[in-house]
Amino acid sequence: MDAAARDADEALVAIYTAHYRSLVRLSALLLHDVPAAEDVVQDAFVAMHASWKRLRDTDKALAYLRQAVVNRSRSRLRHLKVVDRKAPSLLPADARLHMPSAETGAMAAIDRAHVLVALRSLPQRQREVLVLRYYSDLSEAQIADAMGISTGAVKSHASRGMTALRQRLEQTS
């Protein structure tokens, strides 16, 4: 094995150790499907390994991985939607999240489950921006890079997404 291959192998392990879990979580938040998220992220890592000669830098590799994860998650969702249309109608997957909680406190009406359900109902781009912003803590420039759009578009999706999220929560509370 040559030095470049060894370098790529070592980078793979290092980046996997540092970022695999958070990338799976990012993908799972977008897909709502953990096994599919693991597939997506593993695909992205294999592609990153193949492109290591070009990347040769952990930061660039991470940006590459994020972009690959967002794109592949989007593709997977598109595929799942096609499958869903052909499948018989099922109860909403989130129905279980609407069970009453133990206490009816001030926040009970707008709890985590409601937020996540409302988030999943947003248009895809808005959802991606909000997840990258509030889970991955990325800047607008990093989000733009990960999604392949302009920072202006990021701002627009973020603003519309938050407005829509608030409206959905107010409707359910």
């Binding site: 392990v13 890592f45 294999v46 707008i110 985590r112 988030l119 509030y134």
Partner: peptide, 25 residues
């Protein structure tokens, strides 16, 4: 914003990838 952030973080905490990711890659 804070509610969204904590909701995403908490949801993410429940997602634990299988331990064989590296070997599969």
């Amino acid at each position: 914003e804070e509610l969204l952030r904590t909701s995403l973080y908490d949801e993410a905490e429940t997602i634990v990838p299988a331990g064989d990711g590296l070997s599969r890659i």
